[in-house]
């Protein structure tokens, strides 16, 4: 698959898919989408990059180990549980912060951060699995 065309297109495709995965993640609360699907789309993006540039290329592009991404995702998900505790409400009660920025309605909420956590765990863990399987392809 190491054709010139594919290797040229792959980075753009990956970037586009990653962007799309984030879009799917963020719209998840109101439209079809969410952390799980978004995460899987991002994994596919990295897989395409991997096919074009090899596992080492993906690892370089990611900078950190995929499992670290997963771990930080789990941390973020657990952390989003905490605000309700500080406010003395039942654990995991969702907190919302809505405001307008440059005329755009923005709603920040703990479920959103939770979903981002889910997204990161899926991205990290499954990328790690896929990479470790792909890595040994040549031997």
């Amino acid at each position: 698959m190491n054709t010139v065309i594919f290797r040229t297109v792959a980075p753009f495709l990956t970037a586009l898919m990653t962007l799309f995965s984030i879009f799917v993640l963020l719209r998840g609360h109101n439209e079809p989408g969410g952390g799980f699907i978004g995460g899987l789309i991002a994994v596919s993006a990295f897989a395409i990059y991997g096919i074009a540039y090899g596992v080492a290329g993906v690892r370089r592009a990611l900078h950190v180990h995929p499992m670290s991404i997963a771990a930080s995702g789990l941390l973020l998900a657990v952390a989003s549980v905490l605000p309700s505790l500080f406010l003395g409400q039942p654990t995991m009660t969702s907190q919302w912060l809505e405001f307008s920025l440059f005329g755009t309605h923005i709603a920040l909420s703990t479920p959103m951060f939770f979903d981002i956590g889910v997204y990161l765990v899926v991205v990290g863990a499954i990328t790690s699995i896929a990479l470790s399987l792909e890595e040994r392809e040549s031997d």
């Binding site: 799980f36 899926v122 499954i126 699995i129 470790s132 399987l133």
Partner: peptide, 14 residues
């Protein structure tokens, strides 16, 4: 369940 059965499948595969 889909995501979990997938990770289980991956683990089993490895």
């Amino acid at each position: 369940a889909i995501v979990i059965s997938f990770s289980f499948f991956a683990f089993f595969l490895v």
